Simulated assay, not measured.
Amino acid sequence: MEKIKYVICIAAVMVAVIISCKTRYTTTTTTSFKATSSAANFDRGKVLVFSVCAGCHYDRRINKFIGTQIHDVPGIAGKVFAANLTHSKSNGITDKYSDAEIRYLLKTGVARDGRFLAYMLRPNMADEDINAIITYLRSNDPPLRAADTTVGITHFTFVGKAYMNLTAKPVPYKPDVPMPAKNNKVAIGYYLVDNLGCFHCHSKKLTSLNYLNPDQTKGYLAGGIKFKEPNGGEVKASNITPDKNTGIGSYTEEQFSKAIKEGIAPEGGKLKAPMPKFALLKDEEVNAIYAYLQTVPPKNHKIE
């Protein structure tokens, strides 16, 4: 009996070691995708990069995309730092990627060196928007000009590696995704809630997100995820379903716009970080998000 227990114990340790060490995936871009630059793509790309990427990669103290530490990763799992996206030859990474590799990273979460970057996942983003993001990242806009600095090197502990490999996996590569129809306001709203990452923060847990089918995520848009504030405090993401008592069911379109673009709640209070983060969105895009949220089943979930 003791021998069986010993064998089981050894097997469990070996499995744990294998799991913790598997931190690389095969990368296959399969295409020679090349972004097309234009003034319109630059403008759209800037909006998207500031709305999607800035939360992790933008340092507001110096107004540059030099990266930041992701403080929401528990210390027991290690330390995670967002990369420098500027055109730094020593520390920047954007110029080291081909357009096809950036596209593959955004679609699957797999970097060119095989690492899986869960925060990067945007499998349902249209190629038109990926094209715009790449156009902006390739530009010489001031926030992207070379800044030869690094905020830190990502390091996962044994626990972090094991956890990542058990719970976080790349998703299938979905190329050639079209934009939603321009006359379908609700579809546009759903597309934005997906690709701006609204459902990432406003659902039940970051570890149970359904990236391919966002509306099937547990606790979809009902809030509750905790985030660390710069001062060490915590803030919980709000319920943004149209429940009138615990969600945003009583918000007017104008109040909703003011909240996500200016960070001002209907009662006059200021929203805490990471909101507001959508100041650059067009009014019609904000209105489309509002229209979509009104179609989501209301959930009575009070957030303290």
Rank of each mutant, 00 (worst) to 15 (best):
T135D: 04
Y136P: 03
L137M: 14
S139R: 05
S139H: 11
D141V: 02
P143K: 08
R145Y: 00
A146P: 01
T150L: 11
V151T: 11
I153V: 15
I153M: 10
T154C: 07
H155C: 07
T157C: 06
T157Y: 05
A162P: 00
N165D: 10
L166Y: 01
A168S: 12
K169G: 00
K169I: 01
K169T: 12
V171F: 03
K174Q: 14
M179L: 12
P180I: 04
K182R: 08
N183V: 09
N184F: 00
A187Q: 08
I188N: 09
G189H: 02
Y190R: 12
Y191K: 00
V193P: 00
N195C: 04
C198P: 07
H200V: 15
S208Q: 15
Y211Q: 09
L212I: 14
N213C: 00
T217V: 08
K218I: 13
G219W: 08
L221Y: 02
A222E: 14
G223W: 01
G223T: 06
K226W: 07
G232S: 04
A237S: 14
T241I: 05
T241A: 05
D243V: 11
D243A: 09
K244D: 01
T246P: 02
Y251C: 08
Y251R: 04
E254N: 12
E254Q: 13
F256S: 10
A259N: 09
G263P: 02
A265C: 01
G269A: 12
